[in-house]
Design a protein around this nucleic acid. Structure first.
Lengths: 203, 203
DNA sequence: GATAAACTGTACACACCTGTTCGAGTTAGC
DNA sequence: GCTAACTCGAACAGGTGTGTACAGTTTATC
């Protein structure tokens, strides 16, 4: 329990109005987003009711904080992308392109697996170009490493770069699905993803 | 009420009752299955209404031929699998494992791309083990070629076989998605799938 | 401890999808 | 050309999901 008030919460977040949001309201919003992330990652078609229940909150309360399903999904996607971007920003992508790509692959896999079907939930609600823009950030990092590897002759350049990006995405998603099916464990997945994708992109 | 047996059309199909089906009924059933295949391949969540409309038939008529959505989906999946199995049976899978796998990959891609999201429609309606059994046929062909290649030292054997199957599936589905997004053309896809998958599975 | 913000459950309006029933019109088949 | 099979639209029942309105209660904050 915070005994020291002093600029309690963020007044700058969205509505930045005169009054600050009440502490329990902030807590609930947080619980809702967290629950939505968890639930939607498992089932992109989960209802608002499921999410509210998972957050330990009434459905009406949820609507008090988010205008619509789309708004909530957008928030979840935004946070996921922000987290993704932050994790990727910590990565050292210099040096040997293959090694850099390997690190990038492992990290990306962890993120993809954590966020699972949220992307799907996004595609069903958000306009395509908005989704495209969200993907752009992480994608561009991979693309630049890929370009560097191709230019250095360490990665094969005899197929479209966009195709190679698709392959990477496909393998990562495939690994996540394979883990869910129990064919491989979450522990061995990163190495498999890295080795397989690197092999696929090597001449 | 059987006035004339006659054995006109297929009395053996399913209900194998006394009277033969009328010609227009057969035609409609065919149109429905074709439309369902087409529509569900694009959107696995398409409603019965959409399918009936696409088939140029009333919704009630559709229900006259198929008890429920599940029945229709089952029929569509069954036909797709039969077609798949037939196409794969024509393939020569002997000789050099890599060449055989290459042929298998190209053919499988064509089939997957044609049937698209039908698998998803299936997973949502049919019991898991029924789907599993449907997948078993085509999957087992790939598995045996894969095993042969691994044993011959032509394909890498340092990762689980099940994982390699997942990778193949992921690349094929990824290619189909990439074509839909317009990143690559349907013409260049088979070669890309073959080359990429073979590279991924080669030591 | 007073006040306003926030929470709660219930209930309603609306939309969509599934599956069924009905009566009337159309058509294939003998 | 008769008859049974087939088709059609409209309409209903049951289910689910979204979003809103209301009235009462809790609770943070000053």
């Amino acid at each position: 329990m915070a005994t020291t008030p002093a600029q309690t919460t963020e007044t700058t977040a969205r509505g930045g109005r005169d009054r600050a949001k009440r502490a329990d309201a902030v807590r609930n919003v947080e619980a809702i987003v967290a629950a939505a992330t968890r639930v939607l990652a498992a089932d992109p078609d989960a209802s608002i009711n499921d999410i509210a229940k998972a957050a330990g909150v009434g459905r009406v309360t949820l609507y008090g904080h988010f205008d619509s399903r789309a708004t909530l999904v957008r928030e979840v996607v935004d946070r996921a992308m922000a987290q993704t971007d932050a994790a990727l920003a910590d990565l050292d992508l210099d040096g040997d392109p293959r090694a850099a790509l390997g690190r990038l692959l492992e990290t990306t896999w962890h993120l993809t697996h954590r966020f699972g079907a949220i992307v799907i939930a996004g595609t069903q609600v958000l306009p395509p170009e908005e989704l495209r823009r969200a993907h752009e950030g992480p994608m561009s990092r991979t693309r630049s490493v890929l370009e560097r590897g191709r230019a250095a002759g360490e990665l094969r350049a005899d197929m479209p770069l966009e195709w190679q990006l698709s392959v990477i995405q496909a393998i990562i998603h495939g690994a996540s699905a394979a883990v869910h099916r129990g064919e491989i464990t979450a522990d061995e997945a990163p190495a498999l993803v890295r080795d397989t994708a690197l092999a696929a992109l090597t001449a």
